[in-house]
Design a protein around this nucleic acid. Structure first.
Lengths: 183, 183
DNA sequence: ATTCATGCAAATTTTTTGCATGTTC
DNA sequence: GAACATGCAAAAAATTTGCATGAAT
C-alpha cells in the first residue's frame, strides 16, 4: 500500500483544478536538505514520528502547497475548499490535521488581524519573503531582502538552533493612511 | 438597576498593584516621535480618532505596558489580571478594547500556537527585539539585530510606508529538538 | 445634555472531544 | 489483526452582540 499519488481513490483523473498543478510546478529543487513539504517530505515526516499517512492529511497539505506561499487559510476555509475540490474531510479532522502539521513544522500559524487562526505552508526555509502591512487599512505588500534571512540564520545558529524559516513582519502606515492620519 | 460595584471612579487611591508602577518605571524616553503607548499617547491617539478615554481602556493598555515587551496576553488573561488587580472590566469590554487598541496600532495581535488570540504592546517602533521559536517544543528566545530594523525601514520607505514596528519571527529547531528529530 | 462605552447575558462562532467505524501499518 | 484516524454530533471555548444604564466630552 505505498502511496505516492495524490489519493487512493478520490481524485484520480480530475483536472486537479490548477491547485495540484501549480503545486507541482512550484516545487523545483530549492534547499535540498530542508525541502520537507513535498508529498515525499510529508511521508517521511509522518513516518519519522510514527504518524500515519492518510488521504486527509495529504489533501490538507496539498491544498496549502497549491496555494503559493503568500496565502494563508483558516480551518474553515480549508474545510470549504476541500469540499469544493471533491475532497470530503470533516471539519474536526481539518482541525486535527492542522494541529498535527503545524506541530510538525510543515505548516505554520500566522499572525494576522483577520480573526480566526490562519495557517500557511512553512516549507521554503531559505526563501525570503516578508510582509509589510498597513496597521490602519490592512494593505499588504511583500518584499525580499537577503539581509533578513542572514540575520535569521545568525540568530538561529547563535543560539544553537537550526533554522526552519524566518519572516519579517513590518507594521507601518501606507501612504494613504499617513495622509488620513494627518487630517 | 445600579451596578453593584464600588463605583464611579474605581481605583483612585489604591496602591496601583505594581502594574501601573512598573509601567511608569518602564517608560523612559525612547523614540520621541513614535512613543505612542504612554498614557499621553493613548489620550492623544484616542482623541484623534474621536474615541473616548475610559478607565477601562487605560487599564487594559496599562496592563500591557506593565508587562514588558516580551509578553503577550489573551483576552481571557487580560480579564483575569484586571480582576486580580482590582480593576473590574467585563470580558466583553476587554474584547472590545483589545480590538480598538489593535486597530489603532497600540496593540498588535500575535498568533502563537498556544490557542486563543494573543496581544502584545506594539509601541516601541524603533526597538528591535525579535523572536526565535522552536517549532517543535515552543521554546522561545529573544534577540536583537539592528540590521533587521534597517531592513524594515528600508522596506517601508521603499514602498512609501511609514514604519510603525517590525518583528522578525525565526522558526527553528532548538538544540534539544534537533537531537530528538534525529533519534 | 448628548453621545458613546460598559456590563450583563444571550447569541454566535470557533475549536475540541467521545465514540463507532473504516483505514493504515 | 491491532492500532489509530476519521466522521459525526454533542460539548466546550472563544468572541460578538443587543440593550439598559453609566460615564466622558
Amino acid at each position: 500500500m505505498d502511496v505516492l499519488v495524490p489519493s487512493p481513490s478520490q481524485a484520480p483523473s480530475q483536472p486537479r483544478s490548477a491547485l495540484q498543478a501549480q503545486a507541482a510546478g512550484l516545487l523545483p529543487a530549492q534547499a535540498p536538505e530542508l525541502l520537507q513539504a513535498s508529498p515525499n517530505g510529508l511521508r517521511a515526516s509522518l513516518h519519522d514520528r510514527g504518524q500515519r499517512l492518510t488521504p486527509q492529511r495529504q489533501r490538507v497539505l496539498g491544498l496549502f502547497e497549491g496555494l503559493g506561499e503568500g496565502r494563508h487559510l483558516s480551518a474553515e476555509e480549508v474545510h470549504q475548499r476541500l469540499l469544493g475540490a471533491q475532497a470530503r474531510v470533516s471539519l474536526a479532522t481539518v482541525y486535527r490535521t492542522l494541529r498535527l502539521l503545524s506541530s510538525m513544522g510543515l505548516l505554520q500559524e500566522l499572525e494576522l488581524p483577520e480573526g480566526g487562526r490562519r495557517f500557511e505552508l512553512a516549507g521554503d526555509a531559505h526563501r525570503d519573503h516578508h510582509h509589510l502591512v498597513c496597521v490602519r487599512c490592512g494593505r499588504t505588500e511583500e518584499f525580499e531582502n537577503p539581509a533578513i534571512l542572514a540575520a535569521g540564520e545568525a540568530a538561529a545558529s547563535g543560539h544553537g538552533f537550526r533554522l526552519v524559516e524566518c519572516v519579517l513582519n513590518v507594521r507601518a502606515l501606507c501612504p494613504g493612511c499617513v495622509a488620513a492620519e494627518r487630517a
